[in-house]
Simulated scan of single mutants.
Amino acid sequence: MTKKILLIMILLVSYTAANDFNDLKTMFLKKQYAKVCSKSVVLYPHHKHNSNFLNIFAVSCLNSDMINKLMVPIIKLYKTKADRENAAYYATILYKKKLLYYALIDHIDISYVRLPKTNYILSNIFDKYVQKKYRFKGNSYWFDDDHDTTLKYQLSIEEVRQVKKMYLRTYKDGILIKTRTYW
């Protein structure tokens, strides 16, 4: 009798985990990236060996600017060439964020650093920062967009509850349209 109960429990957990992953994929296709990123943290123990899950997790965290959570899927993406390539891409973004934070907070010169390019916004800001392609005005670094002359980016450090954070603000025609926060 105990074996039957154990088997039923295992099947129930497997069914629930599969259902959760299907729900996650549906949210991902609807571009509900913040929800997918947050829910993936909870579902991670059940899907940590599934490359599709790990990449959906990572891409959702990137698209919702929750890049600190990238560390979780990066660790498990090693089985295939594509997994390793994706992990290196995500790690590059995370590393650039950490180096930029370090440089801004501790006034460290990182202009000699050369890392692979990615298409993530903070990665582009990092590249411009190390190449000194910015204007410093009012305790902020200002960057121009390479493709859209109506876009400008403001990078600043602000202290919130005794934690220094990087704020990347995007302006279109001088109007604030998005704020990203990193630490």
Rank of each mutant, 00 (worst) to 15 (best):
S60K: 01
C61A: 04
L62Y: 12
S64H: 08
S64Q: 09
D65F: 14
M66F: 02
M66V: 00
I67N: 11
I67P: 06
I67V: 10
N68T: 10
K69F: 14
L70V: 10
M71E: 07
M71K: 08
M71W: 05
V72M: 07
V72G: 03
I74R: 01
I75N: 04
I75G: 01
K76T: 00
K76F: 07
K76G: 05
L77E: 06
Y78N: 15
K79R: 15
K79F: 11
K81Q: 15
R84L: 13
E85Y: 15
N86F: 12
A87S: 14
Y89F: 08
Y90R: 06
A91C: 09
I93E: 09
I93G: 08
L94F: 13
K96L: 04
K97P: 11
K97C: 08
K97D: 12
L99S: 02
L99R: 06
L99G: 00
L100M: 12
A103S: 15
A103C: 12
L104D: 09
I105S: 14
I105T: 15
D106A: 09
I108K: 10
S111M: 00
V113Y: 02
V113F: 04
R114L: 00
R114N: 00
P116N: 13
P116V: 11
P116W: 09
P116Y: 07
T118G: 12
T118Y: 02
N119G: 04
N119R: 05
N119L: 01
I121F: 13
S123L: 08
I125W: 01
I125N: 07
F126N: 08
F126C: 06
D127K: 00
K128T: 05
K132N: 10
K133C: 03
Y134F: 14
Y134I: 06
Y134T: 02
R135A: 13
F136D: 10
F136C: 12
K137A: 12
G138F: 08
G138Q: 15
G138K: 15
N139P: 12
Y141Q: 07
Y141E: 04
W142T: 03
F143H: 06
D144N: 09
D145Y: 01
D145E: 11
D148M: 05
T149N: 02
T150S: 10
L151R: 04
L151N: 05
L155N: 09
L155P: 06
L155C: 11
L155E: 08
S156V: 09
S156C: 09
S156I: 05
I157L: 15
I157Q: 09
I157M: 14
E159C: 00
V160M: 02
V160D: 08
Q162G: 00
Q162H: 06
V163L: 11
K164H: 07
M166V: 06
Y167F: 13
L168F: 03
R169Q: 13
R169Y: 05
T170E: 14
T170D: 07
Y171I: 02
Y171G: 03
Y171A: 02
Y171L: 07
K172Y: 07
K172V: 11
K172E: 14
